[in-house]
C-alpha cells in the first residue's frame, strides 16, 4: 500500500488581519510519522484544519492522499482521519455509539463496522467503558476515544493534533506504539505538538514551524551526526570536571541542576565523539555513572533551530 501522503506548498491562511499561517511547506510521506512542531500560535492547528478540509487556504497548494481538500473534499475525507486538539464528544452517547455514529457517517458497512469498533475499543483500552456515556470519561480517555474515532474508517492519512495531551504515561507509550504501527502499515501520519519529548521516539521526521512559517525540516534518523548537549554524571564531580578540562571541553551545570546529583553538561559534535569521550574518561579513571543526551533529540534540534532564527 503506497499512498501519496501529504504535500503542502506555500500555504497561507489569514483570519482578518491575523496571519495564522504565513508560508508553510511540508511533506508527510506514507509509511512515516512526521512531527509538526512549533510554539503555541505558530499555525499548527490552522494548517491541520486546512488539511482536514475545513478551511480554504488563501494561497498555496495542498494535496492529501492525492486529492485537493478544497475541490475534492469528500475524496480527502474518505481517506483521512482527523483528531482535533479539542475533542468535543457527544456527551450522552456511549463510547460505542460515538464510534458507530462515526462509522455510519463515513458509510462504513454496518457489518464491517461492528467488529472494527470492538477492535478499536480494545486498541485504545476503552473496552470496559464501551457502554458508558462519554461524559464520564477523563480527559485522557476522551483523547483515546478521539484517536479510535479518527481510525474508524481505516484512513490512509492521519492528522493528529496534540494527541498526547492529557494522556497518562502508560497511554503515551501505547499511543506511540499505535502511531508507529500505523506508519508501519503504510499510512502517512502527521502529529502536531509543542511537547517535544512525546514526539521524540514517535517521529521519523520533524517539521518545525514558527510564526506561520516552516523554519526547518529535520530527519530524526540523522541525529547521530547532530551536534548536541550530553549530560555526564560521575561519583566524583571534581575528577570529572578535571577530566573534561584536560580535553579542552567546556562544561556547564544546567540551570537548576546540581552538579553532584545531575552531572555536567558538555556539547559534543556527534554520537561518535560522545562514545570516544566516554571511553577516554573511563580509561582516565573518572568514575562515570551515566552519560546521555541532555534532552530529547527533537528538543535539541528545536532549540538549535529556534536559536538560528534569532
Amino acid at each position: 500500500m503506497n499512498t501519496p501522503g501529504i504535500v503542502v506548498r506555500g500555504v497561507r491562511r489569514t483570519f482578518g488581519t491575523v496571519v495564522a499561517v504565513d508560508s508553510i511547506d511540508l511533506d508527510a510521506p506514507a509509511g512515516q510519522v512526521t512531527a509538526l512542531i512549533g510554539p503555541n500560535g505558530s499555525g499548527k492547528t490552522t494548517l491541520l484544519l486546512v488539511l482536514a478540509s475545513l478551511l480554504v487556504p488563501d494561497a498555496g497548494e495542498v494535496s492529501v492522499a492525492g486529492f485537493d481538500p478544497v475541490s475534492q473534499p469528500y475524496q480527502v475525507r474518505a481517506r483521512t482521519g482527523w483528531m482535533p486538539d479539542t475533542f468535543g464528544t457527544f456527551d450522552t452517547l456511549t463510547c460505542r455509539e460515538v464510534l458507530a455514529t462515526s462509522a455510519d457517517a463515513y458509510h462504513v458497512p454496518r457489518i464491517v463496522a461492528a467488529s472494527r469498533i470492538e477492535d478499536l475499543l480494545e486498541l485504545v483500552h476503552l473496552g470496559d467503558l464501551a457502554d458508558r456515556p462519554t461524559q464520564v470519561l477523563s480527559r485522557g480517555q476522551k483523547q483515546r476515544l478521539g484517536l479510535a474515532r479518527a481510525l474508524v474508517h481505516d484512513p490512509d492519512v492521519l492528522l493528529l493534533d496534540e494527541p498526547a495531551s492529557g494522556l497518562d504515561p502508560r497511554s503515551r507509550i501505547e499511543l506511540r506504539g499505535i502511531v508507529r504501527g500505523l506508519a508501519a502499515k503504510g499510512k502517512a501520519v502527521l502529529v502536531s505538538s509543542h511537547v517535544l519529548a512525546e514526539l521524540d521516539e514517535m517521529a521519523d521526521r520533524a517539521v518545525v514551524v514558527a510564526r506561520g512559517r516552516t523554519v526547518a525540516v529535520q530527519d530524526l534518523v540523522e541525529t547521530v551526526t547532530m551536534r548536541r548537549t550530553w549530560r555526564v554524571r560521575a561519583l566524583d564531580t571534581a575528577a570529572l570536571a578535571a577530566g573534561l578540562a584536560a580535553r579542552a571541553l567546556p562544561f556547564v551545570v544546567a540551570d537548576g541542576a546540581n552538579a553532584d546529583r545531575d552531572g555536567l553538561d558538555v556539547e559534543l559534535g556527534s554520537d561518535a565523539e560522545a562514545a570516544a569521550l566516554l571511553a577516554d574518561l573511563v580509561r582516565a579513571g573518572v568514575p562515570v555513572v551515566a552519560m546521555h543526551p541532555a534532552a530529547g533529540v527533537l528538543e535539541q534540534a528545536y532549540l538549535a533551530l529556534s536559536e538560528d532564527r534569532r
Partner: peptide, 20 residues
C-alpha cells in the same frame, strides 16, 4: 501494535463519485 485492523474502508466510490 497487537490489534489487527480489519479492512473496512468507507465507500470510496461514493466519495469519489458525485457527493456535493
Amino acid at each position: 501494535m497487537t490489534t489487527d485492523l480489519l479492512e473496512s474502508r468507507p465507500d470510496r466510490d461514493l466519495a469519489d463519485g458525485g457527493r456535493h
